[in-house]
């Protein structure tokens, strides 16, 4: 809705009530993050060592410390709908240095699991699932790689499912057991038609 010339609907967004209310907190969220991540997600004291160590933070809006804070307070909704959740590179630098001995990377992984339960997941992550289902690799081998491998005296394909295709049914069985492929297909279809 146009309010002022030059300040469109964005102004309304700017003037929204952003205060934290007790209702925003879900203690169960803290508990499930802790249970899935198997680390003391509720013990963060916000020192900033994680963000200071993070290779993603200087060039993105991803703030691991903020997700740790949300884990402590149980801010389920804003955590799961925040696209930044998917910007962690899982390098584990934060986990190496956290003085509270928390594993923030695993907290992020737990949150991603909980988001996936609500079908909140970027399509590129789902396409990785499709790739694994097809080839056993998230990033399958390609001709450029094959040429490079040959050049340094390696076999054209690595000794993985690329060479031993007979193990693919087993991998598919695991993915099917958790309905990962079916869910990925369904969500991709919903998003992309």
């Amino acid at each position: 809705m146009e309010r002022t010339k030059g300040y469109p609907a964005a102004l309304d967004k700017k003037l929204q009530d952003t205060r934290l209310y007790l209702e925003d907190s879900n203690p169960e969220f803290t508990k499930s993050v802790k249970a899935i991540s198997r680390t003391n997600a509720h013990m963060c004291y916000q020192c900033g060592t994680c963000t200071g160590s993070c290779p993603s933070a200087p060039r993105s809006t991803y703030r691991i410390r903020k997700f740790m804070r949300r884990a402590v307070l149980g801010l389920e909704n804003e955590t799961l709908i925040d696209p930044d959740l998917w910007l962690c590179t899982t390098c584990y630098s934060c986990s190496d240095r956290c003085p509270r001995d928390i594993i923030p990377t695993d907290v992020i992984m737990a949150m991603r699991n909980l988001a996936f339960k609500r079908d909140i997941v970027p399509v590129n992550f789902l396409k990785t699932v499709t790739a694994i289902y097809a080839s056993g690799h998230g990033v399958p081998n390609n001709d450029v790689n094959r040429a490079a491998r040959e050049k340094i005296g390696l076999s054209r394909d690595p000794p993985t499912t690329h060479t031993y295709a007979e193990y693919m049914p087993g991998i598919r069985k695991i993915l099917d057991h958790y309905k990962l492929k079916a869910n990925a297909d369904r969500i991709i279809k919903e998003r992309e038609g």
Binding site: C47, C50, T51, G52, P58, R65
Partner: peptide, 13 residues
């Protein structure tokens, strides 16, 4: 010195 200015919410170098 690498850290996070937690009050500014910005990584620091």
């Amino acid at each position: 010195v690498m850290t996070d200015d937690t009050l500014l919410d910005r990584p620091v170098d």
